[in-house]
Amino acid sequence: MSFFDSLVVSIFCIALVFFVLISLFALIALFSKVLAAAAAKPGKTSVQVAQTAMQPEAVPQNMEGPDLSTGKLKLKGVDEKTAAMIMAIVSHESSIPLSELRFKSIRAIEEK
C-alpha cells in the first residue's frame, strides 16, 4: 500500500471513528433528555435528604477497576478536600467501595 493510499485510508478511518462516536454522543444526549423528561412528571416532589445517605449494594470483595461514583453532592460548610476525605473514610470503615456508595450531601454540624 502506498503512502498516499495509507493516508487516505487513515483519514477515512478516523473520520468514521468520529462519526460513530459523535452519533453515540447524540444518542446518549437524546435518551438522557427523554428519560429526564419522563422522570419529571408534574406533581412529583423531590425529597431532599439532608443527611449523608449511603446505599450499599452487595459487591464482590476483590473487585478490581475504577473505584468511583457519580452524581451531584451538596457541600454545606465543607470544602471539597474535606468532603473527599470523609467519603474515603466512610468507604474504608464500612468496607464498601466508593463506587457502591452514594453521598447526597455533606454538612458541617455547628457545635452549640
Binding site: 454522543f25 446518549i28 438522557s32 478490581e64 475504577p66 468511583l68 457519580t70
Partner: peptide, 14 residues
C-alpha cells in the same frame, strides 16, 4: 467492572 456514569453524565467525553 466499568461505571459508564461519567460518560453518560458528560457525553462530549466521546
Amino acid at each position: 467492572m466499568t461505571d459508564f456514569g461519567p460518560l453518560i453524565s458528560r457525553p462530549s467525553s466521546l
